[in-house]
């Protein structure tokens, strides 16, 4: 097939491409970059939301102040704790469940669909549901533990630092393991059956087949899943806000940020400080994403 330079269709391609791409770029710029730029601009000022006329330029000092704020540092640790535990457990469980669901068995389609149910429930609803399940008087969890004589007194899970964070992490694990399963299952289905046959002929046992065939093949998928989940977990808001509102040392960065922007920054000059916190959360998550991409040697293209 030969194309001449005078081919009108071919010649106009770049222009058309540009015309078609502009709306997309404009939308992305409008919904993603503009708010980010606005937030960064706000973070350079000392200002209250309701008195924008009284703002004072303070440069980057809001960013320095963040690291002097014990509540910010404490909440950063809480967020990291939440992310490490929830994403770690979700990944391990996700691989295990995905491996099971990849085997052929009766009603597999039904089970695969059922696994997704927790993920399909809005987080607000499931958080409220779990808050009730953790209740000391009527909660099903205490009721089961009491009837099995595991405990004598009901445990008030959400009241104490020792149990509140694990309780919240459990809810996140329950809710988002299906997401991990879904992604990893997709990765598993891409592995050609011949590789397993070859491994079997070479005399590899199940454990060896997993480490030499399955795991290397799903590693990029796990990497992508880890990125998605970690970024999500680092900005966790809804579960914490509904279950404890940050009590019992479970406050995460986003919960603190929301409070700073709205409650504190409304008429007091903390709106810029809250904006700096938002940008800092964005940067921390950005660094984490780059770290993952490098570590996992994922090629994003």
């Amino acid at each position: 097939m030969s194309k001449t330079k005078n081919d009108p269709l071919h010649k106009s391609d770049p222009y058309y491409a540009l015309i078609f791409i502009i709306p997309t770029l404009a939308v992305i710029a409008f919904v993603a970059f503009w708010p980010l730029a606005q937030t960064f601009y706000n973070s350079l000022y000392k200002s209250a939301l309701m008195f924008p006329q009284n703002k004072i330029f303070v440069g980057l000092s809001n960013y320095g102040a963040l690291w002097q704020d014990p509540r910010f540092v404490n909440d950063l640790w809480n967020t990291i704790r939440f992310t490490a535990w929830s994403v770690g457990i979700e990944t391990v469980l996700g691989v295990l469940v995905a491996l099971m669901l990849n085997k052929k068995f009766k009603l597999r389609g039904l089970v695969r669909a059922a696994v997704l149910v927790p993920w399909a429930i809005p987080t607000v609803v499931s958080s409220e549901m779990w808050r009730w399940m953790y209740n000391d008087n009527y909660g099903v969890i205490n009721s089961i533990l009491m009837s099995l004589h595991v405990i004598k007194q009901p445990i008030v899970f959400l009241a104490f630092p020792s149990t509140a964070m694990p309780a919240i992490i459990s809810v996140d694990v329950w809710k988002t393991t299906p997401f991990m399963v879904l992604l990893i299952l997709a990765g598993l289905q891409l592995i050609p059956e011949e590789l397993y046959e070859a491994a079997r002929i070479d005399g590899a046992n199940a454990w060896q087949r997993f480490w030499s065939v399955t795991f290397p093949m799903i590693r990029p998928t796990i990497g992508i899943a880890l990125i998605f989940r970690s970024l999500d977990a680092m900005r966790v808001f809804d579960i914490v806000f509904i279950m404890t509102k940050g009590a019992a040392n479970t406050e995460t960065l986003s919960v603190y940020n929301q409070w700073t922007l709205f409650t504190r920054g409304f008429i007091q000059p903390y709106f810029g400080y809250g904006s700096a916190m938002s940008v800092m959360i964005f940067l921390i998550i950005g660094i984490l994403a780059i770290f993952y991409v490098k570590m996992m040697k994922i090629r994003l293209d």
């Binding site: 209740n135 000391d136 008087n137 007194q153 009901p154 008030v156 959400l158 009241a159 404890t244 009590a247």
Partner: peptide, 12 residues
């Protein structure tokens, strides 16, 4: 008062 009162709001 139960220890759980430390997690109760009006409706609880």
């Amino acid at each position: 008062s139960p220890v759980g009162v430390t997690t109760y709001q009006e409706e609880d």
